[in-house]
Write a protein that binds this DNA or RNA. Structure first.
Lengths: 144, 144
DNA sequence: AGCAGTTGCATAGCAAGCTATCCAATGATA
DNA sequence: TATCATTGGATAGCTTGCTATGCAACTGCT
């Protein structure tokens, strides 16, 4: 029993993330959104007109991943890619009215999932959980 | 700022799981393993000859996901599917000598990733982290 | 001005998730 | 016993990740 999966942080992290994604997907699918699209919208709702590179930095995903997600969002009429006025290589990503209108219902749906997830934790435990998770992320980011 | 991603458990969970997977992948790729294959091997190292359904239960993934992972593992000569003696529908999954031999190096590699991830936490914080994570998983599993 | 290096994106190809279906084998029951 | 429901797997199709490449546009230097 050298490796008990219920004691492996990596195993648990994977399991937890899949459950979060599943819950989020259920909640936002009626809005016509997929999880990665929602994450991208979070950044654009805060600041519209970002470039693809800026989105990559804010969400910490690979550039190729973001390019594909943006292509699907464009297909679904959530964003438009416009030529960047100052740099011929890049484009600025702009929300459509449809995407702007989704902000309220989508964030509510996502908050509901977080609420369920943390439902059995006290207020203090929630803070501890978020803090520890952030520290684990930081440790992993330094090495990988 | 209704939704700060550094305060969203779901966002952090996704980010953390991706970093874990990235670290694990780096560490076990030289062994010819991919992350999901490793997770499956964890179950089979503990008990060889499980059916696909049993693996699905132990890893809590969908049946279709497991079927595809097993197909890749068969392709990579890590497992063999054998006809089940008592149930014509199912098969029992058996490790090859190659997969048996990978147990030591692969678990070491995975433990190293967990070590890095939890490197900045005290012993007590690690226990708290694992406990809280398990409770979040339980809460999510009940609803989704 | 011209070349070299850097940077921003796109694309190909693969792994691992998921949902939805379908088929064959079992089981239960009228 | 014959039919119907359940169960174990396979397959199709999609999203989201990743790495590896390639190309075009920009920057810096000489």
């Amino acid at each position: 029993m050298a490796f008990d999966k219920t004691r492996s942080a990596g195993f648990l992290a994977n399991h937890m993330a899949r459950l979060f994604a599943k819950g989020l997907q259920q909640n936002i699918k009626p809005l016509g959104l997929a999880p990665a699209q929602f994450m991208t919208l979070l950044a654009l709702w805060e600041e519209d007109g970002l470039t693809q590179r800026q989105l990559v930095e804010r969400l910490d995903v690979e550039q190729a991943t973001m390019a594909n997600t943006l292509t699907r969002m464009e297909r679904d009429r959530l964003i438009e890619r416009r030529a960047h006025p100052e740099d011929g290589r890049s484009q600025s990503i702009h929300l459509t009215p449809k995407a702007v209108a989704l902000r309220e219902p989508a964030t509510s749906a996502a908050l509901a999932v977080n609420g369920v997830a943390l439902g059995d934790l006290s207020e203090e435990e929630r803070l501890v959980f978020l803090d520890l998770t952030r520290r684990v992320i930081d440790a992993l980011k330094q090495r990988y």
